[in-house]
Design a protein around this nucleic acid. Structure first.
Length: 212
DNA sequence: CGATGGATTGTCT
DNA sequence: GACAATCCATCGG
């Protein structure tokens, strides 16, 4: 059984990283491990714009074993650890242009029971943050770091995509707001979705922010 | 609900 | 030794 996935080259083909970050909203991120297929619709992303973005790991051309995946071709996975958490990113530009998109939140759709077990939490707490969704999916190490998504257990499915009613662009989370790029609106959210990280209940919508 | 501080683990200076 | 693209428990209003 094959999982429907973006053809990497077609999806990333020559488009700006910010546009890719927005286009990912509403698609489904899937992760295969053994008999499990966990996943959810992407509802929050952040764009990191490479060498001139003060919040990016590749700022000023910074390149090391740590940031190496960013310099590879579009569709390369950048899975790195921040404190006790794993974060999941996808490289968006051709080799040598270190830009990428961080997946920050999912609305669970696949094998939710397994994700509840993986997380040990319930409700929106399953996947409303980048470290949380990695835990929920079952990502426990960095073995797929630096691999092309097409050659990995991950896929991005269009089969069950929903169309966001309204995409909101706001400043990124956890970046120094005083740095030059600190306040750029490069965080994109499906307005009204309950799984947005740090969202308020009063901002949630009955339709979760999807078009009818 | 909002703010705060501790835990935690690798990387870079 | 400082810092980080985070998470969680806890405290106050």
């Amino acid at each position: 059984m094959t999982t429907p996935s973006f053809a990497t080259a077609d999806f990333f083909n020559g488009r700006p990283t910010t546009e890719i970050a927005k286009t990912l909203l509403g698609t489904t991120l899937l992760y295969r491990t053994g008999n499990n297929l966990t996943g959810g619709r992407i509802v929050e992303t952040e764009a990191y714009l490479g060498t001139h973005d003060t919040a990016a790991h590749a700022y000023n051309g910074r390149r090391s074993k740590f940031t190496e995946p960013l310099y590879h071709e579009a569709g390369t996975l950048y899975i790195y650890q921040l404190r006790a958490n794993l974060l999941f990113d996808i490289v968006t530009q051709p080799k040598g242009v270190p830009e990428g998109v961080l997946i920050r939140a999912l609305e669970p759709t696949h094998d939710i029971d397994q994700m509840l077990v993986n997380r040990g939490k319930s409700g929106v707490q399953i996947t409303n943050g980048p470290g949380k969704l990695a835990q929920a999916l079952g990502i426990t190490d960095q073995k797929d770091n630096l691999r092309l998504i097409d050659d990995s257990p991950f896929s991005i499915s269009l089969a069950e995509s929903r169309e966001p009613g309204h995409i909101q662009a706001v400043p990124r989370v956890g970046v120094n707001p005083n740095a030059a790029s600190g306040q750029l609106p490069l965080r994109f959210i499906v307005a009204g979705n309950p799984y947005i990280s740090d969202s308020r209940k009063r901002d949630w919508r009955e339709d979760h922010g999807w078009q009818a």
